[in-house]
């Protein structure tokens, strides 16, 4: 056996390769921030994208829907009672002759507004209190956590119902009733996250470099908890919408002649022997919205999870 060496071994074969430090470190793909990456992942998730489009459509219809028909959501018309959907009344009319298309989207306005407002306020309060408890720690944390322990054991729905019995019915009261102990869940969540982040190396580094508490919280901690907070917020919206619909359904929420999805479902359920479409229409709209919000929340959680990057 002989080794077949190349006939000519030119000396340049033994030249060391140029080690260009810059070239080696060069990025071959465009750099993405955390948010760009999350957005890309979300867009690739077909279910989440479809849900997002459905939510946007619903919000748009809530904004302009009632204006598309020449009927007011509260105007009664004795000449067309319990009419099934036709060319004039796209969703039919209810037992007082009110146009259901206008009522459905006016109801969407109320439900979405209440849902988003309650979820947003809850998150804000939760971030402040949870952040405070987690970051300051010590006595503050202990006192806040004991209060939260006690409040957490009070059933949420019971408090909401109690408040609605006493308060004047209306949108503000509903939001207030949902906010009064609704912030506790996100406060616990944020506190846990802040506690975990507090001992991370980059926070220590920032502190040793002389960063103020303010800077550490707003520059380092909040951006790192934001994904969690946003996911929590998205999941809280359908729950808030459900709570509003439930309260209105049992007669404690939005009062007629105002409209809300809970009210529409209630009247639909009472009247379905005569006019089943009065139940089906709100049922379909509520279900699609809740389903989309939940699926979108799921997608968002996957997209924002840094572990899945």
């Amino acid at each position: 056996m002989t080794l077949h060496a190349p006939e000519t071994l030119s000396p340049e074969l033994f030249e060391p390769a140029v080690a260009d430090a810059d070239a080696r470190e060069a990025l071959c793909r465009p750099s993405l921030t955390f948010w760009q990456d999350a957005w890309q992942k979300l867009r690739k998730n077909r279910v989440a994208t479809a849900s997002m489009i459905a939510i946007i459509c619903c919000a748009l219809l809530a904004a302009v829907g009632p204006a598309l028909v020449p009927y007011s959501y509260s105007a009664t018309d004795a000449s067309c009672i319990d009419m099934p959907p036709d060319r004039n009344h796209w969703f039919g009319t209810d037992s007082l002759g009110r146009d259901l298309w206008a009522r459905t989207w006016m109801g969407a306005r109320a439900s979405l507004l209440i849902g988003f407002a309650a979820a947003l306020i809850n998150s804000c309060i939760g971030v402040v209190i949870g952040g405070l408890a987690g970051y300051v720690g010590g006595k503050t944390d202990m006192i806040l956590m004991r209060i939260i322990d006690v409040l957490y054991a009070i059933p949420y729905m019971i408090v909401a119902i109690l408040l609605m019995v006493v308060l004047k019915p209306g949108m503000q009261s509903i939001v207030l009733a949902m906010v009064i102990i609704g912030w506790i869940k996100s406060a616990r969540l944020v506190r846990g996250q802040v506690l975990a982040l507090k001992n991370q190396e980059y926070v220590l580094a920032a502190r040793k470099l002389g960063a103020s508490d303010f800077r550490i919280v707003f520059r380092h901690m909040i951006p790192n908890t934001l994904g969690l907070i946003i996911t929590d917020l998205t999941m809280a919206v359908p729950y808030a919408i459900f709570t509003e619909a439930f309260l209105s359904y049992i007669g404690l929420g939005i009062q007629p002649p105002q409209s809300s999805w809970g009210l529409l479902a209630r009247y639909g359920a009472q009247n379905f022997r005569v006019a089943p479409f009065q139940l089906f229409i709100p049922a379909v709209v509520i279900s699609i919205t809740m389903l989309s919000l939940n699926l979108f929340g799921d997608g968002l959680r996957d997209a924002l999870d840094p572990k899945l990057r």
Binding site: A265, R266, A283, M290, L291, D298
Partner: peptide, 15 residues
Amino acid sequence: AIAGISLPDFITGSL
């Protein structure tokens, strides 16, 4: 599972 979490019980009950 997702449908069950999304559908309010007053809707499922009536339907």
